[in-house]
Structures are given as C-alpha cells and as structure tokens.
Amino acid sequence: MVGGYVDAALAARFEAWARQTDGSASAALRRLMAEALEGQPPPPPRGSGTGRQIGVRFKDPERAALLEAAKARGTSPAAWLRSLALVHLARRPQWTPVEVEALRAVFHELRAIGHSVERAARRLDGAGDPAGTPGDAARVAAEQVRVAMRRVVAVMTGNFEYWGLPDAERPTAAPGAVERAEAEVRAAEARRKNRPRRRPPRATDGR
C-alpha cells in the first residue's frame, strides 16, 4: 500500500476527477503509477473481467450531461456509457439494481394479485346457481393480470420476440420463438450432460 499527505482541497479535487475517469481514487493512482513506471496501464483489478478500456472525448456540455445522467441512475459515467453501448449492440435493456428491484416488486405484486383473483374465482364457482358461472368475471380479471405480468417480463428482458410487445393488447411470442427457446434449452442441457465429470481425489494412506 502506498500513501501520502496532500492538501485537503487538492485531495477532494483529485477524488472528483478520479471518479469521473477511473471510478475511484485508488484506481486512478494505480493507473498513473503503472503508466509512469512501465509506460502502460495496469491490468484490470480482480473481478472486473478481461475487457479492454476505450476512451471517449466529450465537450464540456456533453460531459456535464453525462455526469448528471449517471448520477441520476446512481452509477458512474463509465458504467452508464457501457450500459448505453450494450443496449445499442445487444438490443437488450440495461437496468440498474434499483430499477431491477422495482420491476421485480411490480411482478411479485401482480403475481400475488393474480393468485388472489384465482382463489376468488374458485370460491365463486361454488356459490350461487350451480348452472351459472359466477367465477367467469374473476377468471377474466386473472387473465388480465397474467397479461400484465408478461408485459413486465418483456420490459425487463427486452426479449420481445419471446414475450411479445409490451404495448400490444395481448402480448404473444413471435412465430417460432417458443420452439427456438426450447431448442436452446435442450442444447444447453445436452452440453451440460456431455461435460467430462471431475473425479473426486483419491484417498491416500499417508505415504
């Protein structure tokens, strides 16, 4: 570990700059030291993957807008740019942890409502005129809840081909999407089964 004492104002300015460029003061110091000593940037820290870093230049107003957008999403400018790139390249949404939890909460709430409505439908079927179907209205409501759940999953995953368009009256999978998804699952399962199994280490007798 390397440390040093600097003026508090200078330290604050450096930390603010480091958050915008490297994500943290320690990461910025590590990069600057490696570049000074070896003439090249250091390897990424453990757990950060093996991706390559790409530098992007912004004008002052653009940089300010980027910082504001990243701050609003509770993330760093680099992470915000990466999410935008992935959205464009992979055609999949990139949600922040807070947004994911919010969408999951909506899904769980809808599922709880659906279960309650289905129980009400079963109770209504056992009451009143046996020739009638008093639970039909509740079953229609339960189906609407399932449609809403499908819309939430479509928004979360961005897989509109499988889950359907969220703004459709009744989201449905595109032709062949279900079959392709099932084929991918079967192929993944086959690959898993064909992997060589690791043999447990043999017990030794101490020799």
Rank of each mutant, 00 (worst) to 15 (best):
R195M: 14
E143C: 07
G206K: 04
T50G: 04
L32S: 06
G23Y: 05
A121R: 07
Q144F: 01
R207M: 05
L67T: 02
S24W: 03
A27G: 08
G47T: 08
L86G: 00
R123G: 03
R63M: 13
V56E: 03
L81C: 12
R73E: 10
P171M: 09
A183D: 08
E62L: 02
A12Q: 10
T21A: 07
S26T: 08
A70K: 02
T75R: 02
G158M: 04
S116C: 05
R30P: 07
E143T: 15
L37F: 06
Y162L: 15
G206F: 01
R111C: 06
R104G: 13
A112M: 00
E62P: 00
V87M: 04
G132P: 04
T21H: 14
G114C: 09
L86H: 01
E169N: 08
R202V: 14
P43S: 07
A112S: 12
G114K: 13
A177K: 06
P97F: 13
D60P: 03
V117L: 09
G206E: 14
V117K: 08
A34G: 04
D205N: 10
G55Y: 06
D22A: 15
E118P: 00
E62G: 01
V106R: 11
L103D: 02
M1K: 00
Y5V: 06
R92T: 15
E109A: 15
A64Y: 00
A173N: 06
A137H: 10
A72Q: 10
R30F: 02
S26W: 00
R195T: 03
V152G: 09
W17A: 13
T75V: 12
V98I: 06
G51N: 14
R123W: 06
A36Q: 12
T157S: 12
E169I: 04
S116D: 15
E15A: 15
A9Q: 07
G49D: 13
A27D: 11
H115T: 12
A120N: 05
A70N: 07
R19C: 13
L10C: 06
F14C: 05
R150M: 04
Q40T: 14
